[in-house]
Design a protein around this nucleic acid. Structure first.
Length: 621
DNA sequence: GTTAACGTCTTA
DNA sequence: TAAGACGTTAAC
């Protein structure tokens, strides 16, 4: 007996939505969910694969032009929190004040909402409107370490393979404010969608490829390939929203794809897609740019340009990224980098004009000594996609007005970089496509570029010089310099992770907790029950708790169970046995020490109960 | 729902 | 740098 999505979908609710949106949409969702037309192309359009098969080699050979569905997460190299991970768990990890972009399903317009409001909406019954939490990027929050992209994504992602590592390292801010962003912060999203959410056809910004892992719920996608014809049709469809219709009916080769819980979909660059949520869903996803889809990536950018897409909906620092990619290709294939410190800083450091300092290398290997050179001794073959892509990048950059070139401040001589890329393209003109399939990505920092340790690079920040003076007119460059000097000031302390650590609660057993109010101290006198104004909001000086513990409802971020191995939401009588949960005082992760049983021992702190330095944070100390 | 008060940000 | 203000969380 085959179980289908049809069993999951609340058809009545869909019909209701169809009635409500009749005028705005010009199509019936119910019909599009059932239409067999979208089943026809699926087999030729979508690759069904296992995690093991999804390798760099596969990408090099195929170019990753078709969506990939992996139904089990085995061998994908994904790291994901436990299944019961709740919306409230997400809220507590990113902070209640964190903003989420929310899509109103009826109007297809987004509005910002804080996590507190969002949780309230999620738990409301019945839900007044259908909202879709589509955009919460959580890098640098407490959720960060619990999620990694599929291995192959981490092996290809330009953000990790081309963006200067020292800049990414400077990122502290967990919000997605462009003012504080030091790298394109788009790698880790959580998408929270209530049942019957629908997101109409759209392109992923910058033509990024996207991975989606469905933790809970069930998603239905409609996918249209990025042929020139479809992109043009899409442009026109967006421009004429007054004459609506289902884009899937206009596009050539559109198909529908179910992505059930536990499955992962990888969507290639430029695919125009829409999504329906069959039941309340939590999805982890991430956007990435890579070298085998440069053409589609840039074509998507042209579409964005034509449509006048707002800056905040675009891939951040897209053009800067292209410069870095060019430098990485030259650097990885010839050993010569065009990155250098800004002229002003070199002067301050009293360095000779000819001396080249790549701040990116300095970061990993201070003192100007060479990082093990990655220059290959034999001729390395490029894939046709890469070769064509490099040419596309040059064209893209050179055809743009001077003020929109966005050359990074650490590339002082962009024209010489362009010349090097042209040489490189020339030298690889006759490369053999078969020999280019090596399973090894050309962009790498070291010979054995380790991708399995997420974000665990050597943390050496280059000597921060004082950049206080006027400098670069370009906002990106100003920001870079500002952050460099800011980093110097804050030296060491200050939490990287934005989310507040879990607030502690009275133990109810210590001498302080058993004491009664003195009624004479400042805090007591201010209490409303003793006739005060109630502004101090502190406990009586005699009642200070000696051993404040984790709240009884705290849960392990690994297994989801509470301090006694039970379900965290269940009422329990406090305080017979001590909680088995420990909060790391460095990363504020709360776990059962045995849940991270990877051999290494943490350091328990007797001073405060349920506290330790976890092995992850203390590793190598 | 109410009450207590934690912890952080603001102010002098 | 300490005192004050107060939003928010935990417990009931």
């Amino acid at each position: 007996m085959k179980k289908t999505v049809a069993d999951l979908i609340d058809w009545e609710a869909v019909s209701l939505q169809d009635d409500e949106c009749r005028a705005d949409r010009g199509f019936k969702l119910k019909e599009k969910l059932k239409s067999e037309k979208f089943d026809e192309n699926r087999e030729t359009m979508v690759e069904i694969m296992t995690g093991r098969e999804l390798t760099v080699e596969y990408i090099q050979r195929s170019g990753f032009t078709k969506p990939v569905l992996v139904s089990r997460k085995d061998d994908l190299g994904l790291k994901i929190p436990h299944r019961e991970f709740s919306i409230d768990g997400i809220r507590s990890a990113v902070g209640s004040r964190r903003m989420v972009d929310v899509l109103d399903v009826r109007t297809q317009k987004t509005k910002p909402m804080c996590m507190k409001e969002w949780c309230k909406y999620w738990d409301s019954e019945p839900r007044e409107e259908i909202l879709n939490g589509i955009s919460l990027e959580f890098s640098k929050t407490r959720l960060d370490l619990q999620v990694t992209a599929p291995r192959v994504v981490r092996q290809l992602d330009w953000i990790d393979k081309a963006w200067p590592r020292h800049l990414k390292e400077l990122q502290e801010d967990a919000s997605n404010s462009l003012d504080d962003m030091m790298y394109p912060k788009v790698q880790k999203f959580v998408i929270m969608s209530v049942a019957n959410s629908f997101m109409d056809f759209h392109l992923s910004f910058g033509g990024t490829s996207v991975w989606y892992y469905v933790l809970r719920g069930h998603k239905v996608f409609w996918l249209a390939p990025p042929t020139d014809k479809n992109l043009l049709l899409y442009e026109n469809w967006v421009k004429h929203q007054d004459r609506p219709g289902f884009f899937g009916d206009l596009a050539e080769g559109a198909c529908r794809l179910d992505v059930p819980a536990g499955a992962t979909m990888l969507l290639p660059a430029g695919w125009i897609h829409a999504a329906f949520t069959a039941k309340d869903s939590v999805v982890f996803s991430g956007s990435f740019l890579h070298s085998f889809a440069i053409e589609k990536q840039l074509k998507t950018c042209y579409v964005e340009e034509t449509l006048g897409t707002l800056e905040r909906f675009k891939f951040p620092f897209y053009t800067e990224m292209l410069w870095y990619v060019l430098d990485r290709y030259v650097s990885c294939l010839t050993g010569k980098s065009h990155l250098d410190l800004p002229v002003e800083e070199k002067r301050r450091m009293r360095l000779e004009k000819g001396e080249n300092i790549d701040p990116n290398k300095e970061f990993v290997n201070p003192g100007l000594s060479e990082e093990a050179p990655v220059v290959p001794c034999e001729h390395v073959h490029l894939t046709q996609a890469e070769l064509k892509g490099l040419k596309f990048i040059i064209m893209y950059l050179m055809t743009r007005p001077l003020e929109a070139m966005e050359v990074p401040v650490i590339i002082p001589d962009p024209l010489s970089l362009i010349a090097s890329v042209k040489d490189l393209v020339f030298a690889h003109m006759k490369d053999c496509p078969e020999k280019a399939v090596t399973g090894k990505y050309i962009l790498r920092w070291t010979e054995d570029d380790d991708v399995d340790e997420d974000g665990k690079s050597k943390k050496i920040i280059p000597r921060p010089s004082d950049y206080s003076h006027k400098l670069a007119e370009n906002p990106f460059q100003r920001k870079y310099l500002k952050a460099m000097s800011a980093k110097k000031k804050q030296e060491g302390q200050r939490r990287g992770m934005e989310a507040p650590k879990r607030r502690r609660a009275r133990c109810a057993t210590c001498v302080g907790c058993k004491e009664i109010d003195c009624k004479t101290c400042l805090a007591c006198r201010d209490m409303t029950k003793y006739g005060g104004a109630g502004k101090v909001k502190q406990s009586c000086v005699r009642r200070k708790c000696e051993k404040p513990g984790l709240p009884v409802a705290a849960a392990c971020t690994v297994c989801g169970k509470d301090g006694w191995g039970g379900s965290p939401d269940h009422r329990k009588q406090p305080g017979q046995a001590p909680s088995g949960l420990y909060e790391c005082l460095l990363c504020f992760d709360i776990i059962h020490p045995q849940c991270r049983g990877d051999g290494e021992a943490g350091e328990f702190l007797s001073r405060q109960p349920n506290s330790w330095g976890c092995p992850k944070c203390l590793g190598g100390m």
